[in-house]
Design a protein around this nucleic acid. Structure first.
Lengths: 207, 207, 207, 207
DNA sequence: AATGAATGAGCGTTCATTCAT
DNA sequence: CATGAATGAACGCTCATTCAT
């Protein structure tokens, strides 16, 4: 007789409510930076945020719902950093090799904070299409920025398949950074990044 | 509740016991190829293997324990494939560009079977240090094989930091393959691989 | 947790308060006509009435409290209908058989509106003594009306135990109507009512 | 990735398991005879039965599932009683009036035990189609027995619409009994039943 | 008076693990 | 050795009710 009544999630209009919602997101972000997504429970997020479970569920549909929000915020944060770093680059030197090296360092810097959270994001983006979608959006935005930069050096660049090249280069850099975050390396990071820059430069540069 | 007393796990000495253990591993492998690690339960593995949960727990400490075993076997299998493929390469052409291209295709081929299982392995290796350890061992073995191959072409190669270079090149290729397995790409795979080969070749080759 | 301290329920003296209370009752009545008592929540009644839960709880002790009020009103309403219908009957024919048939139709007509609410009332009157009490009062009033009518035909009536007879006849009719509301029937309603009238008439009539 | 995996309910094959399942059903029956369906929880049924919740859920899908089983058993029990009583009736007197009176008493006797449970069954049969179905089946079986009996007296019976008549008479009797179980009456039960018998007899009998 | 955010006990349910048979 | 019934802590989630604003 009764139909499944869409779950109602309160959208806080008042100041107090907004603060609570923010507190919950912060608590979730903290916990997700420390431990695996699966071991974090709604109850513990609420506890960490100093609110009751009921409150948690009045602002979020479930654990995944907060996680999405956390990722949105986190993406926003690191994208902000990216923008700032890129801005500095634009007025910089007109040497392609230098620019490539700088872009890699910028990409690396983006992942320096909250490595644990980043890990969880990577893992869940493998499993959860909606989370993957979020990552895509952020990556897309980053990609166009990078493309913009490289465009300024197009007279120094010579590749056969530009679309594949940009896809390859951005993801190679990204994945190497993830690899180092997640697995570390016996060889000191700087040396790896040095070679990475060299590889990318040689690939892009007119011989 | 977790670590009470050291759990006694029987090591099957008799033939029958060994067969049972193998059946359980196979069942787990099958399930892990189909669904996420978390959703696979001990009961279902036992069911799939046609034995009781009790039997399961007499051969394995817990779910993670079988997973480790599954990964060990899987690594062994794909390493076997790798050896075979490499052997063919050794008698092949003496052109560095061709060899790089071939090595990448070999690496790609290794991931063509049991993609689901591979995914689970990647995810868990992010989270579980012991699983990561397993991956290291296998990677190390693969690395030395590749090093061996490249050594044959050392006169055509010119890199400043050979250790960093080999680490970079192998992991870049590996991670790009993982990226394509997990996230796919809008650009056709062949074009990406073509550019990847070009990039690696230009990087290694004496200019 | 249940009965702590005597809950203070405001009795609205002002016009505005009375209107609010009425709006809440109307909202509850609407919801209870649509779905089961258990699935209706205080929050949703308040929402439907356009007031806050807090307001709800300042006018009613709890969910049951509104339900009692809803039933009181509903009883009042259908009793009103009954009175009107009976009034028409009084000037009617002096034939006992006709009167019985008419009374049954009147009883039936009473249940034609808000069948859902009626169902809930029946169910809860089975479980909640106070709700049962409310039904009694209304039934008692209906009974005396019917008794009054039948008194006009007492020369055509011949029963051994008049009190038991009136109890029997009224409840039989009532329960058959409920049965048809709740369970329906494979045999068309009209035929059942036709036979019901015949049965009651034969029972009451001097042979 | 994982589909909703049909809930597996263990069907006990061993003696021990069957006993446990029976204990749970008995516990549920006991609780449902004492209190409302809604207030009985799976946990409390398990507690009353002296088993764990887990055990409960390995034998039953949910609360409703046990309730269905309880009703099935209860129906079986009272139908057994009915058969026994009817058997006695068959060799009895050949007087229609006597038979009607006896059938009513038999029907009444069926409801003498576990009135609370019967109440819950009536209530839920209003709300849950599957429970209603169960009641129908039992009623159907009872109906055909009664029809069989009345057939023996068909020369003394004279009704215009036999199908409607049997529907009317059986349900009237049934509902009056329910009414008395649930609401009681100010007039002593015997007098009501006496008049009920008289009414039904007069209705059926050739005048 | 009115609000609606906040509470938290308690629901239904699952599953890793044990242990009597 | 093998079985699978039994356990129970712990999960996600709801809703009647309160109380600071």
């Amino acid at each position: 007789m009764q139909k499944k009544q869409k779950k109602i999630v309160r959208e806080p209009v008042q100041q107090r409510g907004k603060e609570k919602k923010a507190k919950i997101i912060t608590a979730a972000r903290k916990l997700l930076n420390r431990e695996d997504y699966e071991t974090v429970t709604a109850n513990r997020i609420a506890g960490e945020a100093g609110v009751s479970v009921g409150t948690f569920y009045s602002y979020f549909k479930d654990k995944r719902d907060v996680f999405l929000e956390v990722i949105r915020q986190y993406s926003e944060d690191i994208f902000g950093e990216l923008i700032a770093s890129i801005r500095d680059l634009k007025q910089g030197s007109s040497n392609l090799e230098e620019v490539v090296r700088s872009l890699i360092l910028v990409a690396k810097k983006r992942h320096d904070h909250e490595k644990g959270l980043h890990k969880q994001m990577l893992v869940q983006s493998i499993r959860d299409p909606e989370i993957r979608e979020l990552s895509y959006i952020e990556e897309g935005r980053a990609d166009s920025l990078i493309r913009e930069i490289l465009d300024q050096y197009k007279d120094q660049i010579d590749v056969k398949d530009p679309d594949a090249a940009i896809f390859l280069v951005t993801n190679c850099v990204e994945e190497m950074i993830h690899h180092l975050i997640i697995h570390g390396s016996e060889i000191p990071e700087e040396r790896v990044f040095e070679e990475l820059a060299r590889m990318v430069y040689r690939y892009l540069a007119r011989p």
